[in-house]
């Protein structure tokens, strides 16, 4: 059974990442604010499972706290995208072909011309780098994704006869959108939401890697990779571990998304780009 396998593996990987992030609030194996220079750059061993970095900090602990940063940035960014994109998409679909629809869709096209990295560059250039800027950049980029998806899902529903029946029953467009359209595009949104979540984690890692995301001392997977770069020849585990953490989270979310899609509605097509 492919569907339950995707769901199971994806769910397990996601659970591990989320559990690590939550656990890090109350417990980590070591305190990462303490440097331990004598024990720097240790290879993975029984005491430091994933080894230590150039300041002797425990990498396993940093990965746990880094998960927090990744998840937080991705959740808020997807939240921004859904919170603004879904209503815009519903609004555009309810007024299909009108000037509202036209403006929303052209606005979407415009945002699509700004990859999230470019948005982040623009924001950072005038406001300085921070995790918040990364959230805003990824969030803005998510708006048209959800607006388009919602609109196209809603448009095909507006053609359906049960919507006509609701209109004959005198219901207004906003009410029909909330009562009939939204519940019927919810599956679509959940599945795409999972995918955008995984893309958010990738984007966050990329932005922190080039210094446009979370700033030190906040640990983040992307920053850890940037720090590891000059040491990769003699301490490859510094680069290997955070990378595998990213792959685990993203793979888990993607598998979960595929599993959910098979479970909820096999006809849903996600856009991944």
């Amino acid at each position: 059974m492919i569907r339950s396998r995707n769901l199971f593996i994806g769910g397990t990987l996601c659970f591990v990442v989320v559990a690590a992030a939550l656990l890090s609030f109350v417990w980590t194996p070591y305190d990462i604010t303490q440097m331990d220079i004598p024990n720097k750059l240790q290879k993975p061993n029984g005491i430091h499972w994933f080894g230590t970095d150039h300041f002797g900090r425990d990498i396993f602990s940093m990965i746990m706290i880094g998960a927090r940063t990744s998840l937080a940035v991705a959740i808020v960014a997807v939240g921004i995208g859904m919170g603004l994109g879904v209503p815009l998409g519903l609004w555009a679909a309810a007024n299909k072909g009108g000037w509202i629809d036209e403006i929303i869709m052209r606005g979407n096209d415009l945002i699509f011309a700004f990859p999230s990295l470019v948005i982040a560059i623009l924001i950072t250039a005038v406001m300085g780098a921070s995790a918040l800027n990364a959230i805003i950049a990824i969030g803005i980029f998510n708006i048209p994704v959800f607006a388009r998806l919602t609109r196209s899902g809603a448009l095909s529903l507006w053609e359906r006869e049960f919507i006509l029946a609701a209109r004959v029953a005198g219901k207004s467009k906003p009410r029909i959108s909330a009562e009939h359209i939204l519940p019927n595009v919810a599956n679509l949104l959940i599945v795409q939401g999972t995918i955008q979540f995984s893309l958010g984690i990738l984007a966050e890692a990329g932005l922190s890697y080039v210094g446009l995301g979370a700033q030190p001392p906040t640990p983040s997977w992307g920053r850890m990779l940037a720090d590891a770069q000059t040491m990769v020849s003699f301490a490859p585990h510094l680069a290997l571990v955070p990378g595998l953490a990213i792959v685990t989270a993203v793979l888990g979310l993607n598998l979960l998304g595929d599993g959910l899609r098979d479970l909820l509605d096999p006809k849903i097509r996600v856009v991944r780009s």
Partner: peptide, 10 residues
């Protein structure tokens, strides 16, 4: 799909 390209590059 899950591999970040800059990590893959490293």
């Amino acid at each position: 799909v899950a591999v970040p390209n800059f990590w893959f590059a490293m």
